[in-house]
Simulated scan of single mutants.
Amino acid sequence: MKFRRHTVVQEDTGIDLAPMLDFVMNLLIFFIIAAAFVHESGIRVNRPAAKTAKPEDKGSIFVAVSATNEVWIDRQRVDIRRLRAEIERMRRDRPKAAVVVQADRDARAGLMVEVMDQARLAGVADVAISATPQ
């Protein structure tokens, strides 16, 4: 009688990292794309405080008015006469976006009104003023 030996083939018992790498790559792509849609005004302003201030949850176009009465949009200083065209350009990418005016508390109120007026002339119905919650 002939005996046959059965050899057991050992399988690789390691952890398959492919699904985790796919997940990490998807997260990376998501954050890269999401970062492309964030447009900040470009400067820091000392916003006034308000008890009724609430966070804006939808994608917005931020326009900043500095204490030295400079207007900034998309990290660039803009003349008030060019502001309407810049807002119209940014609204082509995001037609439903609101405009948020981030005015410094020492900025001229008349300039803030001009910024709001230029935003409305650009076709934006939803214009808000940014404030710090108390």
Rank of each mutant, 00 (worst) to 15 (best):
M1P: 08
F3W: 09
H6V: 15
V9H: 06
Q10P: 10
T13A: 05
T13R: 08
I15M: 08
D16P: 09
P19I: 07
P19W: 01
D22A: 13
F23Y: 14
F23L: 14
N26P: 12
I29K: 15
I33K: 02
I33R: 06
A34Y: 05
A34G: 13
A35L: 08
A35C: 07
A36K: 14
H39F: 14
E40Q: 11
E40I: 01
G42P: 01
I43E: 03
V45C: 15
V45I: 15
R47S: 09
R47T: 08
A50D: 09
K51C: 14
K51E: 15
K51T: 13
T52W: 10
A53M: 07
P55M: 10
E56Y: 03
D57P: 09
K58R: 05
G59N: 14
G59I: 04
S60Y: 04
I61K: 08
I61W: 07
I61E: 00
F62D: 07
V63L: 00
V65L: 15
S66R: 01
T68E: 01
N69F: 00
W72S: 02
W72P: 03
I73Q: 06
D74G: 10
Q76P: 07
V78A: 08
I80P: 04
L83W: 02
L83M: 01
A85D: 11
A85W: 06
E86S: 07
E86I: 11
I87D: 02
I87Y: 02
I87T: 08
R91A: 04
D93T: 12
D93K: 13
R94W: 12
K96E: 15
K96I: 04
A97F: 12
Q102N: 04
Q102S: 13
D104M: 07
R105Q: 10
R105V: 14
D106E: 14
A107H: 12
R108S: 13
A109E: 11
G110C: 02
M112R: 02
V113T: 15
E114H: 07
V115Q: 07
V115T: 01
M116R: 06
Q118A: 02
Q118V: 06
L121T: 02
A122F: 03
G123K: 11
V124L: 08
A125D: 15
D126H: 05
D126L: 09
A128Y: 13
I129S: 04
S130Q: 11
A131Q: 01
T132Y: 06
Q134D: 15
